[in-house]
Amino acid sequence: MIKPEWIADNLGVIAGALIDHLVLTVLAVWCGLMISLTAALLIRRLGFLRGPVTATFGILYTIPSLALFAFLVPFTGLTLVTAEIGLIGYTLLILTRNILAGLDGIPAEIRESADGMGYGRRQRLLAVDLPLALPVIFTGLRIATVTTVGLVMVTAVIGEGGLGQLMLRGFNRQFPTMIYVGFVLIIVVALVLDVLLQLAERLLTPWARRAT
């Protein structure tokens, strides 16, 4: 079933697909995080936005991924842009929801004492609010990342897909080795990114470790 010699001969191809997959994933999650942070902070300032924004992201989330990528092709072509619009779109609901939950969960006393210590609004956000919200944000980030790794696979239908394209090529020419290599690597990528995010969370929230 699996031909090791194909793997040995095509390490470059496999590495290329792996890198494509990582780039598609990381770019989507990073852009998604930036957009979600902006959206969440706007919502915290302008409360009336909460309903409309989360509803929009929620609707975006219910669109089947296959349809969204296919729908965008006549507008943005068979390009990285098409893939990224879809991938970013699907991270927004989870990330925004968790950033808001993290910020909403900070006890009022802590904010008040920060204010009392003379923190400005921006200072308090960076020094107090965001660090305290980090665990909940990271939960969202991990879910969004693992989900995106899987969704990247679907962009194979529009000629992207990273490891998904490797799998689809193997499928179309009935070459199981390519399918299995892609499959295993996708799971490995998801798990490794998940572990890396857990490590990052630990590094960024040393107080949480001391507490337990």
Binding site: M153, V154, F171, Y180, I186
Partner: peptide, 18 residues
Amino acid sequence: AGIGRAIPSYALLLVFFP
């Protein structure tokens, strides 16, 4: 359950179909 979440369904279709 966590590993399960990491497996994309489309990938499973390509693995199971053959």
